[in-house]
Amino acid sequence: MEEKPAGMKMAKKGNVTVVELLDRKILDEFSIATISDKIFALVDQKSPAALVVDFAKVDHMSSSALGMLITLHKRVRERNGQLRLCNIQPSIYEIFAITRLNEVFQICKTREEAIGQVTA
C-alpha cells in the first residue's frame, strides 16, 4: 500500500519502509519540515526502523535539507534502526562529498541494493 504525503511517497517492502522524495528541489524550510515530520513520525512509531530514502527525482538540495538528513540519521541510530540513501544523482552526490557527508551516510546506488542492506 502506498501513502502520498506532500513531497514524498512511502511504500513498504517487507519490513523496510522506502521513502521516495518527489520534489525535484528540496530547499526551503517548509517543504523540509513537511518531509521530516512525516519521516520522523515513522521512525518514532516503528522501532527499530529500517528506512530507505530514494533520491532519484531530486536534482537540487539545500544545506537545510542536509541538516534534516543528519537529524534523521541520528534519530534512526538512537533507535537502533538502519538508514540507507539511494539513487543519488551525481550533482547531489557531489554536495555530500564536499561536505564529507558521504562518510556519515550509507549511500547505495540502487533502491534494491539499499533494501537488501537493511534487511540483511
Binding site: G67, M68, I70, H73, I98, V104
Partner: peptide, 11 residues
C-alpha cells in the same frame, strides 16, 4: 560532521 547546520557558506 554531525551538526545539522553550518554548510551553506561552505557550499
Amino acid at each position: 560532521l554531525e551538526k545539522p547546520s553550518g554548510r551553506g557558506i561552505m557550499l
